[in-house]
Design a protein around this nucleic acid. Structure first.
Ligand SMILES: [Zn+2]
Ligand SMILES: [Zn+2]
Ligand SMILES: [Zn+2]
Ligand SMILES: [Zn+2]
Lengths: 136, 136
DNA sequence: CATAATAATGTTATAATGTAACAACTTTAA
DNA sequence: TTAAAGTTGTTACATTATAACATTATTATG
């Protein structure tokens, strides 16, 4: 049983429903898209989605994409270490790939450190065309 | 006469009003905050702000902060080169500092290049506490 | 100049995203 | 068992952004 399964076991009903919706999606979903999907499961108001999302983001099981106002299930191996996390978002097919990089991490730490800036949260998002979409 | 002044001379009336509002602000402003400020100058509808903002962002005179849904006047020296641009945003005082870094640029180019990802737009935003705010 | 093309503006309405606030219920821990 | 913390349901509202259409101003171009 992997880390994901372990954490999932502790999720509440609504958190699990939202998590499943995101996991089964092949791309990011807006909060309202999730709400629509979960109408059949009894969801009625945006708060039900937003509250579950907040927890899932806290747990690092879901990431918020600021440039899309959307949410994506974490697919990064070793979900515990999310210090420096970046996303490549294809504007053609919607695919999101999540990655970290040691040199990038180091450089960012150096830059914020040099400015004496105490980092709380980092947003790194690349918008463009993925390899599958520009090869044709 | 600097680059900024040169470009400003070509701005339309509304673009200039929005640019001035942002330039005179000591931090980022939401579109609706700008709209409120420009009521006295005849602004009535959000479109008037959003349309001006779109042009100013195209001109690289204003940057959109995705994690704040807000806009900030460019204060980066040498506005022409904005390939890799990052922001440190203080969550206490609201100050935004804009910077670029060659090593960071290089690493990001390497990462997107290795993934064969054709970059259109980059969002790099750090949220945290600036040096002025955590020294007390 | 005439006139067509482009850019900018004004306005109304609506869509999309996100929170506040209150009441009820459930789980956990002392 | 009782208090604390967490979860849920719900109504209402706040914030951010765009669609659509009509009008005016500016800029080429012949
Ligand atoms: Zn992740
Ligand atoms: Zn793609
Ligand atoms: Zn700038
Ligand atoms: Zn500060």
């Amino acid at each position: 049983m992997n880390e994901h399964a372990h954490i999932s076991a502790n999720l509440s009903k609504n958190q699990l429903l939202v998590m499943d919706a995101l996991t089964n999606s092949d791309g990011p979903l807006s909060a309202y898209a999730i709400l629509d999907q979960l109408c059949d499961q009894g969801f009625r108001a945006p708060q039900q989605v937003y509250r579950a999302l907040k927890k899932l983001v806290d747990f690092n099981m879901v990431h918020r994409l600021e440039s899309l106002n959307a949410f994506v299930a974490c697919r990064h191996p070793g979900r515990e270490d999310h210090e420096t996390l970046a996303f490549m978002i294809c504007e053609n097919c919607g695919q999101v790939s999540e990655f970290t990089d040691n040199l990038l991490s180091k450089r960012l730490q150096h830059l914020t450190g040099a400015a004496h800036f105490v980092l709380n949260k980092m947003t790194i998002e690349f918008r463009g065309i993925c390899i599958n979409c520009h090869s044709t």
